[in-house]
Write a protein that binds this DNA or RNA. Structure first.
Length: 606
DNA sequence: AGAGGAATAT
DNA sequence: CATATTCCTC
């Protein structure tokens, strides 16, 4: 909001309560600038003052009282770009004010410079974080550099030496840093541990014991577990919302259905989908354009195709003899929904170098009896009963003309910019399973009027009668999302070619030890013919029949049929996808060392 | 004392 | 957001 007269601004400040930042010319017409400043003295509003020339004394005086920053005319673009930093993190600003006030007791005549120095430090910290995240340095803004600040730096008081030591301590630990502890491999171990332990026993200490990672502390596992659990919760909260937004209404749901995903069955699904992803990736790399660099690109090891029967192993036998899992509200014991998702695409089955994080969460694998309980006697991850998700999974990845971002959902950065691929390829993105904004389907029932705003060919936003949603800006669409563009995928493929030295070739560091432990074959009996899922059921009765149940669909709203979105997978049958791949059926005993370690740990625990 | 877990800090 | 730390209970 802009006003021409200062008095207008003052009354606006009085009335409006959500003002976060004021940018004002120091030379105000019709009003004494000091009375203007008094008006916001006790408000928590950041103030940036603009002046044609900066009088140092006056500036320092004002900075002490109210202003948080001074800009000298003419204002550069850089200045504008950095303004946001004055409004974010009110809390830290407040803290800073306190610490500055304390300093003022000792250095009274330099208070303004203190403030600038402190602010500078704040920005520096932010820069550090951003650059570590982005993997590159950004130019640091110079506007704060004055001879005085440099002079000030040389005066080292006891206070400051203490501060410095504190800083060093913080640098040694990982406080405030992105430190990629939870690599893909570690996370998979973590998930495996959770799966093995089960919901009730998956405590930090036990997990750590199974993971057997000397570089991890109990607390780190604890923290990771906390986050993991919160994400499970998030999924359980969010999935029902997808369901009601779904265009695919072929499912008929019990009125009281839930999403009883628990911590360990989700872990199982995630491990499984990761394994499948890697296997398909391997297939792709051996058959498509990447094949020319096959000789140098080491592909991950897998043991798909055979299950590792550990039922006779004395340790595992005990471990796996845990109580049977109860499952709530299973709509269908014979649902044909596959337990994984292949992202739809125009000409390629695998589009991302990131494993499918959300995939596999909805699963009904192996539910073949009318009983919803089972007990495990072998490490057969397919035999566990996981309830149907009720979510037509393909819809999670459908792209429509209209997108909708539910209020309660943030846009998640669960995939990485291509430029940082080499750095992050094995890390991060483990926890954020929510599909990005683009995958949100506009609910049919939504009465909110939506309009798409375009600039040329590029959508720039969505305007609704209630709110407007910004479409992910270009920098975000460059991320390795399931929905990323064809161009982006090509770029990705290019950058993963061997010879690009800032990029780790795919596979070089991607081996997943957990695969050595668990052999998945999601389609060991050839039952999951993905093509079959793209054929719509003719009638609801057919649908019910195929599910082997009658869920009383006649009493429900008859929904339109939509096809599933499993298109263009190179081999529809994952089993086929694996045929002909060397070492496919082997179980490499030498690579099972970790399994042995894990098992002996478990034995010790027992 | 030390684990676990929520909350909060960085 | 990812990770570290604190605080409190058991």
């Amino acid at each position: 909001m802009s006003v021409n007269v200062a008095s207008e601004a003052v009354s606006m400040i009085e009335q409006q309560k959500d003002i976060g930042l004021i940018i004002a010319n120091i030379d105000m017409a019709h009003i004494d600038s000091h009375s203007f400043l008094n008006a916001l003295l006790h408000k928590e509003i950041s103030l940036i003052l603009i002046s044609p020339a900066i009088n140092t004394k006056e500036a320092s005086d004002l900075l002490t009282k109210t202003a948080c920053f001074f800009l000298k005319k003419p204002i550069s673009e850089n200045d504008i770009n950095n303004m946001w930093q004055h409004v974010v993190s009110k809390k830290s600003q407040a803290l800073e004010k306190i610490s500055i006030a304390e300093q003022q007791e000792k250095v009274t005549d330099n208070s303004a410079l203190n403030k600038i120095e402190a602010f500078r430090e704040t920005i520096k910290r932010q820069e550090t974080r951003q650059s570590s995240l982005l993997g590159k340095q950004r130019p640091f803004i110079n506007i704060f550099t004055t001879p005085e600040t440099y002079q000030k730096r040389k005066i080292i008081t006891n206070d400051e030496t203490e501060k410095k030591r504190e800083e060093e301590r913080k640098l040694e630990s990982n406080i405030g840093r992105r430190c990629y502890i939870w690599t893909h491999e570690r996370h998979l171990r973590f998930l495996a541990a959770i799966f093995i332990l089960g919901d009730k026993k998956c405590r930090p200490k036990a997990i750590l014991k199974i993971m057997n990672d000397p570089n991890l502390s109990h607390r780190q596992v604890s923290s990771h577990l906390q986050k993991y659990k919160s994400q499970v919760q998030r999924i359980n909260d969010i999935l029902p919302k997808y369901e009601c937004r779904s265009r695919d209404k072929t499912c008929v749901y019990p009125p009281d259905y839930k999403y009883p995903f628990n911590v360990s069955d989700l872990a199982k699904n995630l491990i499984q989908s990761n394994t499948l992803w890697h296997s398909l990736r391997k297939k792709k790399s051996s058959s498509s354009s990447i094949s020319e660099c096959n000789a140098t690109v080491e592909t991950p090891k897998f043991h798909l195709g055979g299950k590792l029967d550990l039922s006779n192993h004395s340790d595992f036998c005990n471990i796996l003899n845990k109580p049977s899992m109860k499952v709530h509200s299973v709509p269908s014991a014979t649902s044909k929904n596959p337990s994984f998702i292949i992202p739809p695409s125009t000409n390629s089955g695998l589009r991302s170098n990131n494993p499918p994080l959300l995939s596999g969460i909805p699963s009904s694998v192996g539910a073949s009896s009318s009983s919803f309980e089972t007990s495990m006697n072998q490490l057969d991850l397919d035999s566990i009963h996981i309830p149907d998700s009720y979510v037509p999974q393909s819809d999670l990845f459908n792209i429509e003309d209209g997108y909708f971002l539910p209020d309660e959902m943030d846009q998640m950065d669960w995939v990485l910019p291509v430029e940082n691929y080499s750095h992050h390829a094995n890390n991060m993105s483990q926890m954020d399973w929510s599909p990005s904004t683009e995958n949100h389907v506009l609910p049919e029932t939504n009465t909110n009027q939506m309009a798409r705003v375009s600039s040329g060919e590029n959508p720039v936003g969505i305007v609704s009668s209630e709110a407007s949603y910004e479409i992910i800006p270009e920098t975000h669409t460059n991320q390795m999302d399931w929905s990323f563009s064809e161009e982006c995928f090509r770029l990705l493929e290019d950058t993963t070619q061997v010879g690009s030295d800032n990029v780790v070739p795919f596979g070089a560091n991607d081996d997943v030890p957990i695969d050595d432990l668990i052999s998945f074959d999601p389609d060991v009996n050839g039952e999951y013919d993905l093509d079959a899922y793209s054929i719509p059921h003719a009638t609801m009765e057919d649908h019910d029949q195929s599910l082997g149940v009658n869920l009383g669909s006649t009493s429900q709203q008859p929904y339109m049929m939509e096809s599933y979105g499993y298109h263009n997978v190179e081999a529809a049958n994952p089993r086929e996808a694996m045929e002909g791949v060397d070492g496919f059926d082997d179980i490499d005993l030498e690579s099972m060392v970790w399994v042995d370690e894990m098992m002996s740990n478990i034995a010790h625990d027992i």
